[in-house]
């Protein structure tokens, strides 16, 4: 059975529509829509796509859509799935951005965003705590973590420079580890 690009777009459009509150939410949504309803992919494929999505560049929701689209319809499928997923987010933000200027003139909105700006810091902290568990696994990874923080916070080096430095370090550390274990 060949899935038409139109159907593919529609399904990912529906997923994009329900994509509230960060990238991880896409996994249960895909499970419900693509596995249980449509039977387009298997559960173990979804798990693989999710794991892979975290290891390639980009936003997870987009990556996982692209993997699924590619599996179903090749290159054009990947493109269709990505566009489907981002359609609703784009429309929403364009609408909000249009009215934002007027909204911010109301003094109540300013107080709301005052509170929200503090809540955002807490949410960033919670997100770090979550990433923490599977990224800080041994002493070298702690050193990379602290070094990265210091280079960004105190030295104010750009994230791209820092990432290049840390990739170099990571390769050196893993090479050393491989040699030691031999």
């Amino acid at each position: 059975m060949r899935i038409s690009l139109k159907n593919l777009y529609f399904e990912f459009f529906m997923i994009g529509l329900q994509l509230l509150g960060g990238g991880y939410v896409i996994v249960p949504l895909m499970k419900k829509n693509l596995i249980e309803k449509k039977n387009w992919i298997t559960e173990s494929e979804l798990t693989d796509f999710y794991a892979l999505s975290q290891t390639i560049p980009g936003v997870i929701a987009i990556n996982i859509s692209a993997f699924t689209g590619y599996k179903l319809r090749g290159k054009s499928g990947a493109l269709t799935a990505i566009i489907g997923t981002i359609t609703t987010p784009i429309i929403f933000i364009l609408l909000i951005a249009t009215v934002m200027e007027y909204l911010l003139k109301i003094s109540f909105t300013q107080s709301i965003f005052w509170g929200v700006s503090i809540a955002v810091i807490i949410l960033i902290y919670l997100s770090i705590k979550e990433m923490w568990q599977n990224s800080l696994v041994d002493i070298p990874s702690w050193i990379i973590f602290i070094l990265t923080f210091a280079l960004s916070f105190f030295v104010k080096l750009s994230p791209v420079c820092i990432i290049i430095i840390s990739i170099t370090l990571g390769i050196l550390i893993c090479l050393a580890k491989a040699r030691l274990s031999k």
Partner: peptide
């Protein structure tokens, strides 16, 4: 390397 870097940044 990228995982702890993401945390640090």
């Amino acid at each position: 390397a990228l995982k702890p870097t993401g945390c640090g940044l």
